[in-house]
């Protein structure tokens, strides 16, 4: 059984302007000890998916339907009491901005100990020892001295390491990292990613890595989910996604990132702008920006199709290709046949 199973999750925000379907039928599962990357542009629903798992949505947000199972236990509608035993204890989260996610008026030690005292049965002395041990684990020098300092005395990279220490203090089974290195410089980013990788191997936890940086995904993730406008458009191993992308959006993303080889040439950007979540088209959400959009793309949403054992995609182009090379045979005049 998978450690975390998300099934057909729908999360909406009910705003004055109407219902914003931020997450629209997301399903995936996460095995123990694996690193799953969720990539997508701003507004694609990657963070909201994570917040839905943790149930820390803003007050206007609500999980409309679907299920989130942790170790077989259903979390949706399980109630705040159950969630309190999950959050921080079983599933931890680190946020993008290490500057604002620490309380500036408490010492680092106090904040670290608070998490430990709340979630474990340790007493204050043991909690202090554990906090020092965690700081040492994330490579902070002189942890005893550092315990007495305030967040402003730390640099951005160090604060993010403290956030990681805090998230890992209770030995969670899953760590959700929501753009953990976006606010950091490249050399510091490399340090943090290396640290996360080594801790993941050492402690055997699973990581959900939310990012828009495909470079970070390539470096860290075993499996990748590509999201667009609240839905998963493609899912597979890192190699599947990077070397044989099967969705027009993923292909577009890969073409639009500059690399050493593109110098002096034109990039191939995805045209247009991301769609308005208040006015979702009835067909494929990417169709208005897709260069190869067909009639069916605009009229009908493509179901999730299995491309290989590990690789899933929701793109009509795969059906077209299948028909063209003869691997899919249409049944008598039935429109847009199911593949495989």
């Amino acid at each position: 059984m998978a450690l975390l199973e998300v099934n057909d999750l729908h999360t909406s925000f009910f705003t004055d302007a109407g219902e914003v379907r931020a997450v629209n039928g997301v399903s995936f599962s996460l095995e123990r000890g694996k690193v799953l990357g969720i990539v997508g542009e701003s507004g694609s629903g990657k963070s909201v998916t994570a917040y839905s798992i943790m149930q820390i949505l803003a007050s206007t947000g609500k999980i409309v339907s679907g299920s989130v199972k942790f170790d077989g236990q259903e979390l949706v509608n399980a109630g705040e009491k159950v969630m309190k035993t999950i959050r921080g204890n079983k599933i931890s989260i680190i946020f993008q901005d290490p500057m604002t996610s620490l309380n500036p008026t408490y010492t680092i030690g106090k904040q670290l100990m608070e998490a430990i005292l709340l979630h474990t049965s340790r007493n204050r002395k043991q909690a202090r020892e554990r906090a020092v041990e965690m700081l040492r684990l994330v490579n902070i020098n002189e942890p005893e001295k550092r315990m007495k300092q305030y967040p402003f005395e730390f640099s951005g990279g160090m604060r993010q390491r403290i956030m990681i220490a805090m998230a890992l203090a209770c030995e969670p089974d899953i760590l959700i990292a929501d753009e953990p290195t976006t606010a950091l410089d490249v050399t510091i980013q490399a340090q943090i990613l290396e640290l996360m990788k080594s801790l993941q191997e050492e402690l055997g936890m699973a990581i959900i890595m939310i990012t828009h940086d495909l470079g970070v995904v390539a470096q860290l993730c075993d499996e990748v989910i590509v999201m667009y406008a609240g839905s998963i458009c493609e899912q597979g191993t890192a190699d599947d996604i990077f070397y044989t992308p099967k969705h027009e959006y993923t292909k577009g993303l890969m073409r639009s990132i500059p690399t050493a080889d593109t110098a002096g040439t034109k990039l191939h950007p995805i045209t247009g702008t991301p769609i308005d979540l208040l006015n979702m088209p009835k067909g494929c959400p990417f169709a208005p920006r897709c260069d190869n959009a067909m009639k069916i793309c605009i009229n009908e949403r493509c179901e999730r199709m299995q491309m290989s054992e590990t690789h899933f995609s929701s793109c009509w182009m795969n059906v077209k290709q299948g028909i063209d090379d003869g691997s899919i045979v249409l049944e008598e005049t039935q429109e847009g046949g199911e593949s495989k």
Binding site: M158, A190, G215, V217, A218, I257, T259
Partner: peptide, 21 residues
């Protein structure tokens, strides 16, 4: 330290880690 968007290159890449800030 540049994250290269290519899993095979990224896995093989030897990063020169800087210590400290």
């Amino acid at each position: 330290a540049v994250p290269v968007p290519d899993p095979k290159v990224a896995r093989a890449n030897k990063r020169i880690m800087l210590t400290g800030d």
